[in-house]
Nucleic acid binder design. Structure first.
Lengths: 195, 195
DNA sequence: CCTCTTCTGGACCTTTCGGTCCATATAGGC
DNA sequence: GCCTATATGGACCGAAAGGTCCAGAAGAGG
């Protein structure tokens, strides 16, 4: 009943995500979103609510994709230590490969809005809690496989790797050399306690 | 000659910094800056130029203070390894102690503006290049003092510590527990290669 | 004490912001 | 082929943005 939507919601969310990613939340205007999606205000408001609600939906889908990506890397068939290496290396390479060094949308959004928008903070918290859990599990696997010191605290190592990951993300935005970013990731792993 | 300034420039820069720190660049309006400083537009524009120029001056003074603070910690009389510990611990404690978890102004500004404002990126780059240099020197000292493996690459270790520092800064903004932040800093140091 | 130069605060301007509203278009259900 | 319900895009709104400008205030120098 009624007239059907004339656009694909996921596709619109992708275009909107690009805008927020390129300019940040406050600096992207409704006009930017309209031109990026080709939609009018009526459609945007009807389908997603106001600017803030639309932004949160972008963050939700982004978080889901991020967690899925990390999970894929950290639960592959290779040895656990190798999976951890792959994660850090692909993060460093990925951040460096982006010509505009945009970094991670969730990180940028958190940095911009954390002191004014609890809903953004809550999404950041669940995202990185999720990544932390995946890392800890993978560290535990590496201990079971005999590649890391079984006496070490897996939570401590997982959190350390999470911090290094975020550090690489930020330093990429300061235009640090790609080789230096990679060096940091490899250094973090090479100094984990061995059995 | 002429009427003298009716305010202290450094004091005004401090008030302005607080505003930018609390709300970010795009979200603080000229009105915010006027009420925060008690000055009119004429005075603000006359003394500091437009909003963007004023912001850059805030970043400059902030960078100087940051580098001075880090230098003070990393060149103290204690053993070098202990100085490194002090830096990471005071960073973790400092970020956690802020009730609003505002993080570092330079980091927040970089995350918000790096893809639109090369002048901000350049300030971030010099800031963290400076911190990196200080860290590398301190690592080298620790090697000379026999507390770290003299065969390790000091640049690699310094950069790793820089990344951990930035990681802690970010995770603080996601409301990670203060104890977890501290744990990360200590873990990073405890797993550095010993002689 | 008068003048000259700079500072000061607010009036004012243009533009753009996010958001609402509505006349029209359009497909599904009967 | 209606009728109904939703989608659509743009007109429209008040508020707020950043920036300019100016009349008056106020020391410093002679």
């Amino acid at each position: 009943m009624g007239r059907p939507r004339n656009f694909d919601e996921n596709q619109v969310l992708e275009s909107v995500r690009e805008q927020f990613w390129n300019r940040g939340y406050a600096a992207t205007s409704l006009q930017d979103l309209m031109t990026a999606t080709g939609l009018g205000k009526g459609s945007l408001y009807g389908a997603f609510g106001d600017k803030h609600q639309l932004f949160l939906q972008v963050l939700d889908s982004y978080r889901d994709e991020q967690l899925t990506g990390v999970r894929q890397i950290l639960t592959g068939p290779d040895p656990a230590l190798q999976r951890l290496t792959l994660l850090l290396e692909s993060a460093a390479n990925g951040f460096a490969a982006d010509a505009h060094r945009r970094g991670c949308l969730m990180v940028n959004s958190t940095s911009e809005l954390h002191s004014q928008d609890p809903e953004v903070v809550s999404r950041a918290r669940t995202t990185y809690q999720g990544v932390e859990d995946l890392l800890i599990t993978c560290v535990r696997d590496a201990q079971l496989e005999g590649d890391l010191d079984p006496g070490a605290d897996p939570q401590e190592l997982g959190r350390l790797l999470l911090a290094v990951l975020q550090g690489i993300e930020f330093l990429a935005k300061t235009n640090m050399d790609a080789s230096a970013l990679l060096q940091i990731g490899r250094a973090a792993l090479s100094h984990l306690p061995r059995p």
